[in-house]
């Protein structure tokens, strides 16, 4: 395993202490007011009230609109990778609890793999990391997600800023079909309402496509529709699109599950080349892939009718060679799941 920033000196996995956690954080949902609801009128914040049927979610912040310059809201300059810290994340869909007080640290510039059988909540966890979870109408959550120490669910934070800093690549490649490859790559600028000069865009397109190792394949047809690419190319186009807004963290939700082995290798090479520049969190069902690309690994598991938890997490080598929990051992060796 390559360790770009801070090498782990002790290659050892961690088993979350269930008992201690339960004592401190029992009733986390009841005691902690949900961040969306804690804004007050005096703060001049238009906060999203999930119960308001006239509004599916508003993030308008009148004060910020006046004082924040464009460059403050959005910068074309690449930002350094940031550490991501999930603290006591619980999640519900309606009444059904799918995650229970999950904490995980994802150090800056590293690649973290989330593994575990289907339905154990790892995709939900990933979607909580960039506030996509709340797009599901019945979804709710508790806990904190700290990006460089700053809670992205803080009422003062803008949801668009959180999502721009924490990009996401989905299981199914979703380029905008009406746009060309070029337009797709810089779509983030348009979506954020940012004007960029032609030269800036040209640079950004080449830079992002190179990072996603797609440039050589598409440089002669940048203005053809993005939908005309192969599955693997479309996925890498989505990666390039995410990179173009210079995120500090990139989340990947089973990015290779629909790809053939060659395309999978290209995506893995892309991940390899991004190591150190961006913090990457990847959900994968492919054990070998997790072992190949990740520095640290977290094993999620949900027993019958109970919410998902992290059974074990830590250095990838240790997770695969010498797991401390029997269930991890069984899973990474393909004995279930």
């Amino acid at each position: 395993m390559k360790m770009p920033s801070e090498p782990h000196t002790v290659a050892m996995t961690t088993l979350p202490d269930e008992a201690a956690g339960a004592g401190v954080h029992a009733g986390a949902r009841a005691g902690q007011q949900s961040p969306e609801q804690s804004g007050t009128a005096s703060q001049q914040l238009a906060v999203f009230d999930p119960a308001d049927p006239f509004d599916a979610g508003s993030t308008f912040d009148p004060e910020a609109t006046f004082d924040a310059g464009l460059e403050k809201r959005f910068s074309l300059a690449a930002q350094p990778a940031a550490g991501l810290e999930a603290e006591n994340i619980s999640a519900w869909f309606g009444e059904r609890k799918v995650l229970d007080r999950v904490s995980l640290s994802m150090p800056a510039g590293t690649v973290t793999a989330l593994i575990g059988p289907s339905g154990c909540g790892k995709s939900t966890f990933l979607r909580i990391l960039n506030r996509m979870h709340e797009m599901v109408p019945s979804a709710s959550l508790a806990g904190e997600v700290l990006l460089d120490g700053q809670d992205i669910y803080d009422p003062q934070q803008r949801i668009t800023a959180a999502r721009r800093n924490i990009g996401m690549v989905f299981q199914k490649a979703n380029p905008f079909p009406a746009m060309s490859i070029y337009e797709n790559t810089v779509a983030g600028l348009k979506l954020a309402g940012l004007k960029a000069s032609r030269a800036e865009k040209d640079f950004l397109v080449e830079d992002s496509l190179r990072k996603a190792s797609l440039w050589d394949e598409v440089k002669d047809r940048l203005h053809q529709p993005g939908g005309g690419l192969s599955g693997g190319q479309r996925q890498r186009l989505c990666i390039a699109r995410s990179l173009a807004v210079s995120p500090r963290v990139l989340l990947m939700d089973e990015p290779c599950s629909a790809l053939d082995p060659t395309s999978t290798r290209r995506v893995e090479e892309t991940i390899e080349s991004l190591r150190g520049e961006v913090t990457i969190v990847i959900v994968t069902h492919n054990m070998q892939q997790a072992a190949r690309v990740s520095d640290t690994c977290a094993f999620f598991l949900a027993a019958q009718n109970t919410p998902g938890v992290i059974v074990e997490h830590g250095d990838t080598n240790a997770m695969f060679s010498d797991p401390r929990d029997q269930r991890t051992n069984d899973y990474v060796n393909g004995r279930f799941g």
Binding site: A56, G57, T59, F74, N130, M132, M135, T160, A161, A162, R163, R164, N165, G167, M168, F170, K172, N174, P175, F176, P177, A178, M179, A187, G188, K190, L191, A192, G193, C238, R241, S242, V245
Partner: peptide, 27 residues
């Protein structure tokens, strides 16, 4: 309008109007 494209737009930090303009209206 496909949920995948909507989420793709939001994941790039789109405002609601930005998402509507790039995904919903063209679709």
């Amino acid at each position: 309008a496909p949920i995948g494209e909507r989420e793709g737009a939001f994941a790039l930090g789109a405002t609601r109007w930005g998402m509507i303009r790039t995904v919903v209206l063209p679709f």
